[in-house]
Design a protein around this nucleic acid. Structure first.
Lengths: 222, 222
DNA sequence: TATCCCATTTTGGTATCCCAAACAAGGCAA
DNA sequence: TTGCCTTGTTTGGGATACCAAAATGGGATA
């Protein structure tokens, strides 16, 4: 694999894991020493990450994309029609094996699992559901949206009951697809998206002071 | 403006105008002489275009993305929920001035206008409608989808009545937004997307032989 | 004539070099 | 002390140099 792709993946992971703080400045020279490669592959990786909007330009400089709480609502508004469409399509197109695969994914995430695992599965669930639609554009759009949500979701203060609720909703969506009830699945998906949006917004706006204290650039949400 | 952006825009235009044929190989050295720049900005532009999927890798090489007739249906399936959502939102969010702007755009495209103009406005209309939704994610998704459709739409054999019909539909969508009738606007938008999809598929699959004769890589649509 | 093999060329990937613009620090004058 | 200008440093943008892998082509051989 080319160095550019390696650097891209590592940098991406560092950003999503908040190892690099939102808003933090990235200089090509620092990355050069950090990854022990020359600027050429580093710059290519940055250009790539820029198109994923994980990295952004601030004047002439590179910065890690800040977390924009203001876009959380727009993101939910965007996901809603797409995911309801996805689950409807999934009802007609998903095979039993496909569904079983996602069930297994949810099952694998038990109470004792580390937080990273819960976070990852909670994101992947939506992408995998989108995949059941068989429409690559829907998959890509949802995948991008979940990536954009990823860091905010990680910062959310999870309570046990809210986590339980989200999981129950995931299971219900899947079971409606399994029993081939597109409208119920769509309704459930819509409720889930609205519900998680509300929980996320509440949690983050309450904790906003704490986020700033940790040095994260968090913008939006007047 | 940086050389990289200039090259990106020019190359983008050459691809979308079919000046560079779908499937055509691009070597960095050829681009180097074509744009009289070094490989550094050229590679950056290529990486950027790759993320827009206008350019793609074929093994180690760069090629202009082929036109995939098979994705036209998926694209319509993707646009449908997004654009119906967009027009519904537009009803509550668009100002009279916004709507007048789009009307002016349609008016500017009279019978004598060159084909490029019709093509451009026919694409931009959908993006501008999306913009009325006020949701940047919807705008970006629609914009990307229309870009992906652009070359296929250019190759479509337009008949006078089909063009007229498309224009009438655009006007109807807009007027329903203007009179604040979200459901009618959504229905109209859905019909429009399905209708143009059908026309496009019919036209291109009939003319497929002709496309290949022109040396374009056209894949999909079994 | 068809096929295989090796020399040559071409290609993309990477490292390095140079430059102009942006930035920061320090000193000078009011 | 404050504001401004100078100057040295750092940065990203671009050009060039080098390399290994892949492609190409031509000639020897069967």
């Amino acid at each position: 694999m080319s160095q550019m792709l390696q650097i891209h993946d590592q940098l991406r992971e560092m950003i999503l894991s908040l190892d690099l703080g939102p808003g933090e400045r990235l200089t090509e020279r620092w990355l050069e020493s950090r990854f022990e490669g020359s600027r050429t592959p580093i710059r290519a990786a940055l250009v790539r990450l820029e198109s994923e909007e994980l990295v952004r330009r601030d004047g002439r400089n590179w910065i890690v994309a800040p977390i924009d709480l203001g876009e959380l609502e727009a993101l939910a508004e965007f996901r809603l029609p797409l995911e309801t469409t996805a689950v409807r399509l999934a009802c007609t197109r998903a095979s039993a094996a496909d569904i079983a695969g996602i069930e297994a994914m949810l099952d694998a995430c038990q109470a004792g699992a580390p937080r990273e695992e819960w976070h990852r599965v909670g994101t992947d669930f939506h992408v995998e559901i989108a995949r059941l639609s068989g429409n690559p554009f829907i998959v890509k759009a949802i995948s991008g949206a979940m990536t954009r949500l990823s860091r905010a979701r990680w910062l959310e203060v999870w309570t046990e009951p809210s986590r339980e609720q989200a999981w129950a909703e995931h299971r219900r969506i899947l079971s409606f697809i399994k029993t081939n009830d597109p409208e119920a699945a769509a309704r459930e998906a819509a409720d889930h998206i609205s519900g998680t949006r509300d929980r996320l917004l509440r949690s983050l706006s309450e904790d906003r002071r704490g986020l700033k204290a940790r040095g994260f650039a968090v913008v939006g949400l007047r």
